[in-house]
Design a protein around this nucleic acid. Sequence first.
DNA 1: TCGATATTTCGATAATCATCTAACTATCGA
DNA 2: TCGATAGTTAGATGATTATCGAAATATCGA
Lengths: 97, 97
Amino acid sequence: MSSSKTVRLTDKQFALIAKALAEPRRYQILKEIGKCKEQMACSALKEGSDISAATLSHHIKELETAGLITSTKDGKYMKLTVEREVLHAYLEQLSKI
Amino acid sequence: MSSSKTVRLTDKQFALIAKALAEPRRYQILKEIGKCKEQMACSALKEGSDISAATLSHHIKELETAGLITSTKDGKYMKLTVEREVLHAYLEQLSKI
DNA sequence: TCGATATTTCGATAATCATCTAACTATCGA
DNA sequence: TCGATAGTTAGATGATTATCGAAATATCGA
């Protein structure tokens, strides 16, 4: 089970997260990664979507830079995981408005 | 007191909200409006911030288009209010990831 | 009515960013 | 080792957008 340690976001990271979520395609990608029980490979994301590998790679990097996902190399593939603690820290901060 | 009716967001509105929140200045503005117990005038937002009236007006319109705030004209001033139900609907949707 | 204040609109500019193709690196299976 | 597959990087392009100054509109107080 996931730890419940509260993640503290800097202003910079908060802004990065907000920007990462603002692009509809990135939001879709994040949802897709989150839906997967197992970690997900980039190539699986590309299935059935008319996006170039380069663009997909770019979006994944943005999500990663924001801290919303992490990626680990597994042989030929990159495995992607949603960092829910970071997402929830973002939501937490927004809910204080 | 505020109603607890659940707001349903279309994909379009969801995207507008995400985009509105992605600009740090707009997030600051939203927080500022939210901090005020009473409704807030645009001019009060401008205090102590080196932003032009035109830019401020633009950001306020974006927040309004997204549904995150509403504005009512009160004499010389525009009074701004945070639409927390919309914000919370956004958070609700994001938390499902 | 006049001048000051509040806000919006317009048009322009500069910066950011999503997207692509092409070229590259790395790994796997035969 | 070779060819195919996965993913990244670089560089270019077009679209979006944050920003401003200036002009316009509306309202207030004197």
